[in-house]
C-alpha cells in the first residue's frame, strides 16, 4: 500500500495545507511554518545522534568552482549542475544590460562566471577543509542548502533543498564500519519516525552514454546504499543514502591519515524536505494529529 496515490495528489495536498507555497516553476516551492517546524525537528533529531565532540558545520548553497570540479561531480551528473554567474561590467555594460532587460532580450549575456557553483551535496564543502594530515579518524555533522537542476512536478524532487549528513574521514576499516553503523542508525531513525523503510544498493541517474558504465560500476561496487519508502504505487522513493568513497576525495583534496596514507571517506545523510514530505504523507497534513512518539522525536510544539 503506497502512502500517496500520485505525485500531483501529494503535491496538491501539501499545497492545500499550506506546507508548500507554489513557485513560478517546478522545484522551488516555498515552505509554510508547520513544514519548517518539521524540517528543523528532523535535522536536530539527527544531529542529536552525534558522538560527543562531533564538529558541526553549516554552509550556504555555494562551493568554489575548482573544489567542485575536483569532486568529479560534473563527470557523473552534468545535467544537475548549476554554475553561478555575476555582473562585472562598468556603466556602459550596465546600460546595455538595462536596455536588454527593457527590450525583453537575453540579458544573461552580460554576466560572467563567478568562480562558484551551486553545491549538489553538503559533504562536498567538508572534504576540502580536511586537506592535509588528519589527527585521527574524524566524524563531522553538516548541513546546507543544495541545488540540483531536475525540475519536476514530483514534490519529492526539488531543485533547491537542504541536506544534513555525517561525514567520516579516516581508515578503510573505519569507513566500512561507519557505513554499516550509520545505515543501521538511519533505518532505526526513520522507523522511530513511523516510516516503513528498506535499504538497497543505489541506482543513481548518471548522465548519458558513459553513465551506463558508471551506473554498472556503482551497482557492482555496493559503495552506495539507499533507504527508500513505498510512497507512490509504481515505485519506491529514496529518502536517504549512505556512501563510501574509498580514497576518491582524499586523492582529490590531499587528505591523509596520520600514518601518511590516503584517507578513506564515507557519508550518511538525507534531503531534509524529502523526509518532511514523507512524514506528511505517512501521518497526515496536520502535525497536531501525528503519533505522540513521532512528535516527541521532532520536539514539535
Amino acid at each position: 500500500m503506497s502512502l500517496a496515490a500520485s505525485e500531483t495528489t501529494l503535491r496538491d495536498a501539501l499545497r492545500d495545507a499550506g506546507h508548500l507555497l507554489p513557485g513560478p516553476r517546478p522545484g522551488i516551492d516555498g515552505h509554510g511554518p508547520e513544514f519548517e517546524a518539521v524540517v528543523d525537528g528532523i535535522w536536530r533529531a539527527y544531529f542529536d545522534r552525534a558522538p560527543a565532540g562531533t564538529p558541526v558545520m553549516a554552509f550556504g548553497p555555494l562551493i568554489d568552482a575548482a573544489q567542485f570540479t575536483a569532486t568529479d561531480y560534473p563527470r557523473s551528473f552534468p545535467h544537475l549542475v548549476g554554475e553561478v554567474e555575476v555582473f562585472d561590467g562598468g556603466d556602459a555594460e550596465h546600460g546595455a544590460l538595462i536596455r536588454d532587460i527593457d527590450a525583453g532580450a537575453d540579458w544573461t549575456t552580460h554576466f560572467v562566471p563567478s568562480g562558484m557553483t551551486f553545491v549538489p551535496a553538503t559533504c562536498e564543502n567538508v572534504y576540502p577543509r580536511y586537506a592535509g594530515t588528519l589527527e585521527g579518524p574524524t566524524i563531522v555533522a553538516c548541513r546546507s542548502w543544495c541545488f540540483r537542476h531536475e525540475p519536476s512536478d514530483d514534490p519529492m524532487r526539488m531543485v533547491s533543498f537542504r541536506i544534513c549528513e555525517y561525514v567520516y574521514l579516516g581508515s578503510a576499516d573505519g569507513a566500512e564500519s561507519f557505513r554499516t553503523d550509520w545505515l543501521g542508525l538511519l533505518l532505526e531513525f526513520f522507523t522511530d519516525l513511523g516510516l516503513e523503510v528498506a535499504s538497497d544498493r543505489a541506482n543513481d541517474p548518471f548522465f548519458g552514454r558513459i553513465g551506463a558504465m558508471l551506473a554498472a560500476n556503482q551497482r557492482r561496487s555496493g559503495m552506495k546504499n539507499e533507504i527508500s519508502i513505498a510512497l507512490y504505487p509504481d515505485r519506491r522513493t529514496a529518502i536517504s543514502s549512505v556512501n563510501t568513497h574509498r580514497t576518491h576525495f582524499a586523492d582529490s583534496f590531499g587528505i591523509r591519515q596520520a600514518g601518511g596514507e590516503p584517507a578513506h571517506t564515507a557519508c550518511a545523510g538525507f534531503g531534509i524536505e524529502r523526509v518532511a514530505i514523507a512524514l506528511f504523507a505517512a501521518h497526515g497534513m496536520t502535525t497536531a494529529d501525528w503519533p505522540e512518539p513521532v512528535r516527541a522525536v521532532l520536539r514539535l510544539p
Binding site: 558504465m213 554498472a216 561496487s221 576518491h248
Partner: peptide, 27 residues
C-alpha cells in the same frame, strides 16, 4: 578508478576516431 575508466574510454575514442556502442559501455 571508475572515473578514470571514463576518461580512458573517451581518450581512446578520440585517438582512434571511434565510438563505443551502448552495449559496450560496461566495466
Amino acid at each position: 578508478t571508475s572515473h578514470a575508466a571514463v576518461s580512458l574510454l573517451l581518450e581512446i575514442e578520440d585517438r582512434l576516431g571511434i565510438e563505443f556502442p551502448p552495449e559496450q559501455m560496461t566495466p
